[in-house]
Design a protein around this nucleic acid. Structure first.
Lengths: 138, 138
DNA sequence: ATTAGTGTTATAGTTAGATAGTACACTAGA
DNA sequence: TCTAGTGTACTATCTAACTATAACACTAAT
């Protein structure tokens, strides 16, 4: 595991999202054991207290379950996982569309830009999401 | 002017983005005077020092120009504004597509989701960007 | 019982972001 | 010249996030 940090977001939130993505995308399956506090801390070069906070938040969201003395496990409730997937996707979608509208793009522009970016993606492999799209005009 | 704060992002970055969006979308035109430090601070109920930092960053990005004793003005270089628009749109696009891919969505799913969200938007007026999209399955 | 691997808790210190308050410098206009 | 409205600078204080370190509690396996 390795995460690109450095943003302006708190580390514990970034790690939270990283783990949630792994669960939602199936890299971590329901019931799977997740790394221990100390193990992940050493792995990511992050203080154990920060990892502990990350995990407490994940537990508060019912994404993982704790068995004291044993470790932490991905929830077995697949409905919960699906709900989180929808929530995360909805959040991404909203931020994108709302953001583009604020920049002055029309709805049809937005669809075109996404279509083109995805087409680029298919041609070039997964590179960088087409940064300066040619259709990026309002 | 009013901004919904509260995220985990520093306030000065949020205000920066807000002003950049106003410029890029044409609400603020090239050469326009922007609010003074004290005025915006009072308006947003934010400490003047924080606004000062916001403006310094905007100046560093060459989005605004300062005339000491007079005030600050939106840059007159329209090419600079276009560049920033492309940069901001590219960032939004990349975060969205990359994020959706990490959640396990295929490229064709992503295009469909955006198309539907935009269609919803058209029907319901600008409401909330279609949070729990029905097609949000991989 | 002992050990190793877990989660859990606590104290102390550092840093960035934000606030509070004050003061100084420049410019336009009366 | 004086005043009002600018940008700018500085010190002090507060809080959240993060780090450093240590200790304690529970569980499974030996």
């Amino acid at each position: 595991m390795s995460i690109e940090f450095d943003n302006n977001l708190p580390i514990y939130l970034q790690i939270m999202n990283h783990i949630k993505r792994q669960i939602v995308s199936g890299i971590l399956q329901p019931g799977d054991k997740i790394p221990s506090v100390r193990e992940l801390a050493a792995d990511l070069q992050i203080n154990p207290n920060t990892i502990q906070r990350t995990f407490q938040e994940l537990e508060r969201e019912e994404v993982v379950e704790t068995r004291r003395g044993l470790g932490r496990y991905v929830t077995s409730e697949e409905s919960k996982i699906m709900a989180i997937k929808k929530e995360m996707a909805g959040e991404l979608l909203h931020q994108f569309i709302h953001g583009m509208q604020e920049l002055g793009f029309k709805n049809q522009d937005i669809v075109s830009i996404v279509s083109e970016a995805v087409a680029e993606d298919r041609k070039q492999g997964v590179k960088e999401g087409a940064k300066g799209g040619n259709t990026a005009q309002s």
